[in-house]
């Protein structure tokens, strides 16, 4: 919308007001609801190619704003399908729990909390018992799926997890699971955590090959 065109210096970031507040980008909206089952990848005979394809399917989850928003590359989490910086401004702090006096639990609870009778664009405050930011070494914001893939396998950047632990984390971690139940007014990540866990397991089983960076 031209009315909100801004100064040229940072125009790239700020073309529009509003568009994207509620709407998902078209590319995300398509196929947003489902994940292909692991079995459907059997037709890919090349093991490495199959592994890459499995990870790319899992990438629909990993690169979804629901997940990336809390794997920011800066000190500040993101919000919404447009992945704008979190308002009010909050910062990583100790253990990703926020700064003193403005920790996540100043507003977030152990469960998603409905917001009643207020903004149409804010139907609930998300919550989870483990609500916090991923450590900076696990940042996904701005990275390609290939880069994220390599990062997941690098114990220096994955919380010292073995592949088995990584599979377990993806398949069963409660905070990861929040992505499928993000609360009223928020688009969930595709598929189910069980399907996602199977994709990651199959990816590991096929050699955990990564897409090109």
């Amino acid at each position: 919308m031209k009315i909100t065109l801004l100064f040229s210096g940072i125009a790239v970031n700020c073309l529009v007001v509003g568009v994207g507040i509620m709407l998902a980008p078209a590319s995300k909206a398509q196929n947003a609801g489902s994940l292909r089952p692991v079995e459907s990848f059997q037709s890919i005979s090349d093991k490495r190619a199959r592994s890459v394809a499995l990870f790319e399917e899992a990438g629909k989850v990993i690169q979804h704003p629901r997940c990336v928003n809390c794997h920011p590359a800066t000190e500040r989490p993101l919000q919404g399908m447009s992945m704008r910086p979190h308002q009010p401004p909050v910062f990583r702090g100790d253990a990703g729990m926020g700064l003193v006096g403005m920790q996540c639990n100043t507003c977030h609870s152990e469960q998603n909390t409905p917001v009643v009778g207020q903004a149409d664009t804010l139907k609930s405050i998300p919550g989870n018992p483990a609500w916090h930011l991923a450590p900076i070494e696990m940042a996904w914001e701005g990275k390609t799926l290939g880069q994220i893939c390599e990062q997941l396998k690098d114990q220096k950047r994955n919380g010292e997890k073995t592949m088995a632990e990584m599979v377990e984390h993806m398949a069963h971690d409660e905070l990861v699971g929040w992505g499928w139940q993000p609360g009223d007014g928020r688009e969930p990540v595709p598929g189910t955590q069980e399907e996602f866990g199977k994709l990651i397991q199959a990816w590991a089983d096929t050699g955990a090959a990564c897409p090109s960076p």
Binding site: L6, F7, G9, I10, N13, C14, L15, G18, P85
Partner: peptide, 21 residues
Amino acid sequence: AWRKLTDAPVRQLPIVSIMSS
């Protein structure tokens, strides 16, 4: 001051869109 920093005069307000802030 912003015009000096960026060589771009401000012709549209607000300067920062909510999308970038």
